[in-house]
Design a protein around this nucleic acid. Structure first.
Lengths: 138, 138
DNA sequence: CACTACATTGGACTTTGTCTAAGTCAAGAA
DNA sequence: TTCTTGACTTAGACAAAGTCCAATGTAGTG
């Protein structure tokens, strides 16, 4: 993802300091941050960055298909920089951490025509929930 | 679900007018209401019912396994009275309405052992997203 | 019927996110 | 290089969804 900024500029994205730090935060560790976590980390480098800017930038990255939005349960949305390969998520029901996983097969194929109720189905997401090794010990 | 109240009383659930109307709202149509929709419908029959009571009651019904909580994207959680048969959900990405669907196969089986990272996986939920016939027309 | 533990109430509060008006600035033009 | 301009950013108000709490009410037991 090191050429993310380049790809975006090629697509006419105006490059600002704020957008750069947000992209760098996502690029750094391969973790799934919430918007506020992204904001906190971006503010380490650019203290005056506004929350609204982080939200705007994240939405744009999602719209551009560079980042995925993952919402688990009622908690804050998390942002997944690994939008290149399709994958699903494994969520710890205690601590909320997320791991990317790659199940076999296509869940879309498992939904028979007579169960589609006329919807134009665009995607199927699978969420596995369980207790991670870290949390099961305690 | 007509004997829901009876089942709950047998399990030591204290039966109040508020809890009764909440249960009746869920029992009525087989729709997936948000907490506020449940509150509005409950208030038709019991005008002084508090929002907090509806939230409390819904949480208890979920904890007791009588109702499922479905959270799609950043929207309000919806409550699914059909907790008896396992099923998945089809969500309209415009209006947010939900339909129960029954895909073939077991998504848990699609996750290889080496992708489980030591988690004790308890469940797999599949969410299909698309535009419903109602929204695609306009 | 009285008692008491549990349920309900209303309103303040929190979290997550959106909106807006005014100011700022990146990038192309001259 | 400097100018121009429309897109970007900011701070703070606002909104939606949900939680918390102290005071009050009540279901069910004995």
């Amino acid at each position: 993802m090191s050429d993310l900024l380049e790809r975006l500029r090629d697509r006419g994205w105006r490059l600002t300091a704020q957008r750069r730090v947000v992209a760098e935060v996502l690029d750094g560790d391969h973790v799934h941050y919430t918007a506020d976590e992204v904001h906190a980390r971006a503010a380490d480098r650019l203290p005056e960055i506004a929350r609204a800017t982080v939200y705007n930038t994240l939405s744009e990255l999602v719209a551009l298909g560079e980042v995925l939005e993952v919402s688990t349960d009622g908690r804050a949305k998390r942002y997944d920089p690994n939008a290149r390969h399709t994958h699903q998520h494994l969520v710890c029901s205690r601590c909320g951490t997320i791991r990317d996983v790659h199940p076999t097969g296509d869940p879309l194929a498992a939904l028979p025509e007579n169960e589609r109720y006329g919807f134009a189905i665009a995607e199927a997401t699978v969420t596995y929930r369980g207790v991670c090794p870290n949390c099961s010990g305690s």
